[in-house]
Design a protein around this nucleic acid. Structure first.
Lengths: 214, 214
DNA sequence: TTAAATATGGGGAAAAACACCCTTTTTTAT
DNA sequence: ATAAAAAAGGGTGTTTTTCCCCATATTTAA
C-alpha cells in the first residue's frame, strides 16, 4: 500500500523532530519534510517539490504563523489538508484556523494514538476534530457568539493592523489608498465599537483578540 | 554498557511520547517512565519505584508545575539531576528553575542532537546550559549590562504600565506625583531605549516582554 | 422600492503627543 | 572625591490625535 505523505510544520525543533519519529512509526504515513514556520511552507511549494496529502501545522510560529500559512495553502494548494496542532484550545484561534481552511484541530496534549486516528480520519473523511475542540465550538457558536464577539469589517481590520504597526493616519491613508479623513472615520467607528478611548485601546484589543500575533 | 535511566515529565502527551521515541533512539539512554505533571513525579517516588539518573522536566504543567516538582526533588531525591525543558527563555523562569535545583535548561526549539549532547553532559559533568540560556543569565546578572536585554527603571516601568492603561501624560503625572513634563521625559527616554517611535510601540513592547499581562 | 447601512471624504478646533532644547538636585559608582 | 547617572522639572515649537459636526454616493436589506 502506498504511504500517505505528510509535512510537519513547527518551530520547536525538538517537538517536530520527535513528532517526525513518532509519525514515522505509523506504517501508513511517511514524513516528507519538517519545516519550522509558515514562510518555509510557502518556499517549499514555490520550488515545486513533492506535495503532501496532509500538513500537521503548528499555530504560533515566527515569521509567518500557522493561520496565515493555512490561508495561503487554501488559496494556492486547496487539495492539501491542514491539521492544526496547537497548545491551547481558545475559541478565537480555533475559529480563525478553521476559517483559514484547516480540516482539523488537535491539542498537543493528546495521546499519540489519537494523532494516528486523526491522521487516518483526515485521510478518509477529510476532517477531524477532538472532543475538546468541538465542545469549545459548541459552547461558543450559535447565540453566544453573535453578542460577545464584535464583528469587524475587512477595512477596519486592515486599519487596526496598520495602527498596531505604529503608523500615523497619514501613512495608513497611503497604504489603504484613502484620504486621511476617511482613516479618521475608521478610528472613530472602532473607538465606539470596541469601547476604547485611544489608539492604545485598539492595540490592546487587537492583541487580546489575536487579530495581530506578537 | 549500562544504560542511563531517564524519566520524561510533560503534560503534552504528544510531545512527551514523541520525545520518548526520540530519546529511546539514543542507545545510551533508556526512558524509564513518562509522566505528565509534578504530582505524578511525587507519586512515582512515593511508591519506591526504580530511580532515574536524569529527569527531563517541562515547566508549565497542571496540578504541580516543573518548578515545584524540581524543588521537591532537590529536597527528597537530591541525587537525581533535573534537566528543564521549556518553551520560553524568560529570565525569571530560568532563575526560578535553577534556584529550585535544575542542573540544566533547554529550550524546546533546539535540535535533537543538542538534546543528546545535553543529556551526555548532564550525565558526565552534572550540568548543561544552552547558549541562549547562559546569555539570558549573563544579561540579567549585575555583571554585564549589555544592549540585548534592556533594563528599565522602576519609575519607567510604572510609566509604561500606566501608558498601556490608556492614560494621558497628564493623568499619569497625577498618579505618579510628577509634573507632566517629567512624564514626557520618561516617554522620550523609553522611546530611545526601546527603539520605538510612538506610544503604540511602548505598548507592544510591554506586552511582548510581559511587563503587562493581558 | 424606500430606508438603512456602508464607504468615502471634509471642516474646524482642542487636546495630546512628539521633538528638541535646557537646568538643578540627588544618588550612585569608580 | 569626583564623575556619571538618575530623578525631577522646564521652554518652545510642530505634528498627530481626538472630537464633533457634516456630505455624498453606493450597496444592502426590509
Amino acid at each position: 500500500m502506498e504511504k500517505i505523505d505528510i509535512i510537519i510544520v513547527d518551530d520547536h525543533m525538538l517537538f517536530s523532530q520527535a513528532l517526525n519519529g513518532l509519525v514515522s512509526q505509523f506504517t501508513r504515513f511517511n514524513v516528507l519534510k519538517v519545516l519550522s514556520n509558515g514562510k518555509e511552507v510557502v518556499d517549499y511549494f514555490s520550488n515545486s517539490n513533492k506535495e503532501p496529502e496532509i500538513i500537521l501545522m503548528d499555530i504560533q510560529m515566527p515569521l509567518m504563523n500557522g493561520i496565515e500559512a493555512t490561508q495561503w495553502l487554501k488559496d494556492n494548494k486547496p487539495e492539501i489538508k491542514v491539521l492544526a496542532l496547537s497548545m491551547e484550545a481558545d475559541e478565537v484561534t480555533i475559529l480563525k484556523m478553521l476559517r483559514a481552511g484547516a480540516k482539523g484541530y488537535l491539542l498537543k496534549d493528546i495521546h499519540p494514538d489519537i494523532l494516528l486516528h486523526a491522521l487516518n480520519e483526515v485521510h478518509t473523511s477529510g476532517f477531524y476534530y477532538t472532543e475538546n475542540v468541538t465542545n469549545t465550538l459548541l459552547n461558543s457558536s450559535p447565540n453566544k457568539e453573535s453578542e460577545r464577539r464584535i464583528k469587524l469589517k475587512d477595512r477596519e481590520l486592515e486599519f487596526l493592523k496598520l495602527t498596531v504597526s505604529e503608523k500615523t493616519y497619514r501613512e495608513i491613508a497611503e497604504v489603504m489608498f484613502l484620504s486621511p479623513k476617511t482613516v479618521e472615520n475608521y478610528r472613530e467607528a472602532l473607538f465606539e465599537k470596541l469601547e476604547v478611548k485611544s489608539r492604545i485601546g485598539l492595540v490592546i484589543y487587537a492583541i487580546k483578540e489575536k487579530i495581530v500575533i506578537l
